[in-house]
């Protein structure tokens, strides 16, 4: 997947900027002037946040500002060229960006916005996908006629890294990419209790009471 051309403009732009930012050769960022060094870093961070499903409406404004000001204020052509890449993306893919901010990647490439699922109607229980999965994310049992029954194949979402190997090997195209059900995610938010106070003995006094302990270290 990584070798292929990305169809999703958000993913493609992010990759171009990250490549420029991390490139140590003479074609990469020289790390001298502030607008380019800091602005492109922030553009990458904003795109990453959008792709992770944490997009905000004001991100479009910020990206537009970065594109315009790096172009005006940048020191060299390399930086200005990448500002142009960003502004060209913003001009051409306004609708795509808005979709992403809402949490939908219509190209189904932004890994955090999609899930892989196995369509039980198409699945022939051939076990190829389970063998190909590097992350042991697919569970199920192949039917051996006369010996066993079978367990339907499904993908354990916690383990899936969206690497795409199962799609490659499935002869029936039974592995499908669906957009993540964001509302379902939000129904049961995962909450962990985090201890913010110092229970190792040094009660600092000014530390705020945490969810587990009171300020003097006793369990609530």
């Amino acid at each position: 997947m990584s070798q292929q051309e990305n169809k999703c403009p958000v993913e493609a732009t992010r990759k171009k900027l990250i490549h420029f930012y991390n490139d140590n050769s003479k074609d990469g960022m020289c790390s001298k002037c502030h607008p380019c060094k800091l602005g492109i870093f922030d553009a990458i961070k904003i795109l990453e946040a959008i792709q992770a499903g944490n997009g905000r409406d004001k991100d479009v404004v910020l990206l537009k500002r970065i594109a315009a000001d790096v172009k005006d204020g940048g020191m060299c052509k390399k930086g200005k060229d990448h500002a142009d890449i960003l502004s060209a993306f913003l001009a051409a893919s306004t609708a795509d960006l808005e979709h992403h901010i809402k949490g939908v990647c219509s190209y189904r490439e932004c890994k955090q916005l999609i899930t892989y699922e196995i369509d039980p109607a198409l699945c022939t229980v051939c076990d190829k996908c389970r063998a190909a999965c590097k992350d042991n994310a697919i569970e199920g049992q192949k039917m051996i006629p006369g010996k066993t029954g079978f367990t339907p194949y499904r993908i354990r979402q916690r383990r899936c890294t969206h690497c795409g190997e199962c799609i490659k090997v499935c002869p029936e195209n039974a592995v499908v990419i669906v957009e993540k059900d964001r509302e379902a995610d939000q129904k049961e938010p995962v909450r962990t209790l985090v201890c913010t106070c110092d229970v190792s003995g040094k009660a600092t006094g000014h530390a705020p009471a945490c969810a587990i302990h009171d300020t003097v270290g006793a369990v609530r």
């Binding site: 607008p35 602005g39 204020g73």
Partner: peptide, 11 residues
Amino acid sequence: EEIRKFVTDLV
């Protein structure tokens, strides 16, 4: 002015 604001904002 906009460039100055942008740099200060980033810093």
